[in-house]
């Protein structure tokens, strides 16, 4: 019934020194639709692919604003993300009340990651099943950070998470050297091009299913919507050079082999 006897509790180490429950929680992130983020020297951009349960349903929002200088995009269990977003908003607001300035994103990310970690070390709670990209612009410039159920957090120039995010990652790795000097518009276009690799074969990016948000120097966190977003979608169609879309229906990794938690061990 179970893969092994070490994979049902978060508090149990496997003989190899792995935590299977945490690894499974990280699988939940890979089930969520893709989102990505990228930074220049002045701005940070988030792009996400939204899903709807059926044609009569609305799309599940993927990007949430935390404060004027910070927002998140999530992949995985949305309900978990909402809890965490509430925590982040409270922290940001408290900081603003006490210090009169905006909370440093990396410090919030550290606290958030510590919250994730605590769930991996006690029997009482399950790990959070959500991965998060935090885009912010604070006293030390623009930042993009990733948190994961394992309690790890990293700062990136650009990163993609969620289902079929590998092709986006490949795109970002290919182009990341252009990002620091890029304009916000170029950053968004790079983001959308990378994101187009994450959709299944026959679909296309459109205004309804894509979320884009920007934050930067003199630019409060804001979602790019409607006609403005359409303009970017049109532009990338003209420019081409998008990430190769993933073959339809093919999962990223064989489902029965859990990815080693090597992120936790580096």
């Amino acid at each position: 019934m179970f893969r092994n006897q070490y994979d049902t509790d978060v508090t149990v180490w496997s003989p190899q020194g792995r935590l299977h429950q945490v690894e499974y929680a990280m699988e939940a992130v890979k089930q969520g639709s893709a989102c990505l983020g990228l930074t220049s020297k002045t701005h940070a951009v988030l792009c996400a692919l939204k899903r709807s349960p059926n044609e009569l349903g609305s799309y599940q929002e993927k990007i949430m604003k935390i404060d004027d200088h910070m927002g998140i995009s999530i992949a995985g269990l949305t309900a978990d993300a909402r809890m965490l977003a509430k925590y982040m908003r409270t922290e940001a607001l408290n900081h603003k009340y006490v210090y009169g300035t905006q909370l440093q994103a990396n410090r919030l990310a550290t606290d958030l990651a510590d919250m994730h970690q605590r769930c991996t070390q006690s029997y009482v709670r399950r790990p959070y099943g959500v991965g998060m990209l935090i885009a912010a612009h604070d006293a030390t410039g623009p930042h993009l950070m990733e948190t994961s159920p394992s309690g790890n957090y990293f700062e990136y120039v650009a990163m993609a998470i969620g289902a079929r995010s590998q092709s986006a990652k490949t795109y970002l790795e290919k182009h990341y050297q252009d990002f620091p000097a890029a304009s916000v518009d170029d950053l968004i276009k790079h983001g959308l091009k990378a994101l187009s690799g994450c959709i299944t074969g026959d679909k296309e990016l459109d205004v309804a299913s894509v979320s884009v948000a920007i934050v930067g120097a003199g630019q409060a966190f804001e979602e790019v919507q409607g006609a403005r977003l359409q303009a970017f979608l049109d532009a990338i169609e003209v420019e081409g050079d998008a990430a190769a879309p993933a073959p339809a229906g093919e999962p990223e990794a064989p489902a029965d082999v859990p990815a080693p938690m090597d992120e936790g061990i580096a």
Binding site: V98, Y99, G100, T101, Q104, N106, R107, A139, T140
Partner: peptide, 18 residues
């Protein structure tokens, strides 16, 4: 934290006010 962030006097002021 060693993250390059340095607290400004206005923040100390606001903190003490709180």
């Amino acid at each position: 934290m060693d993250d390059g962030f340095k607290r400004a006097p206005a923040e100390v002021h606001s903190y003490l006010r709180a």
